[in-house]
Amino acid sequence: MFFAGAAGLVAFYLWGLLGLPGFGNYPGPYGPAILRVAVAQTQATGVVSAVNFEYRGFDTVGEEFILFTAAAGTAIVLRMLRGEGERSPVDEARDRDAPPTSNAVRTIALLFTGPVVVVGWWLASHAQTNPSGGFQGGVVLATAFILIYLAGAFLTFSKLSPTDVTDAVEAAGAGGFAAVGLAALFTGLPYLYNYLPLGQIPGAVSSSGTIALISFFVGLEVAAAFLLIVSELLEQTLLIRHGGR
């Protein structure tokens, strides 16, 4: 059964492959066209970011909301069900030798937290310059909070990233992106038109107008979404128990 299906898939794949350009000589019109004009039009040297946040900005809004919906869906699926309560896990084998978090793990995690935050912000704010941007920076920023979880207890982690605040930041990130685009409409320009000054030096942090701003909001959104997902999963493992408190 599977192999019959696989044979069909292989046939279709070969058929599709014959229509593709050979590896290493991509002829398509869009890529070369964007490469010709992007740096001059947007003053961004990171053309991938220019594509994501400018030429295909509208698609990225949609993609952003897929992320938003997936995070919200995770939170809804992992809610407390009927017949479940929140309580800390009870150690059922008290006499076993459970090692506490070692000082080495704790020290290394805390040492890394600061640099990770800096790297995350740096990535989120340099989309216009080099291979970085809001998506990458956001994930790195979320990692900082996970390091805090590794270094300490879950309760410290949840105190530092309360769900209300994470929710608000996530909404601000997603809404901010949409709002940057909407602001253009009020001045009679097309949605997501790059209306901010582009700057003079290609690749400078202050250049490229809305690309940098949108990347910042995407960074917020991604960091908050991943933090929300991780804390929902941790809560599910560590706090929610069948049969009440």
Binding site: Y30, D59, E63, A70, I229
Partner: peptide, 22 residues
């Protein structure tokens, strides 16, 4: 190389991570 497919791959990665969590 073509920046459009690279931008597609970038969003692909992020969506995949979030959908996997769901």
């Amino acid at each position: 190389v073509d920046p459009v497919v690279q931008a597609l791959a970038l969003t692909d990665v992020v969506v995949e991570a979030a959908v996997t969590a769901l």
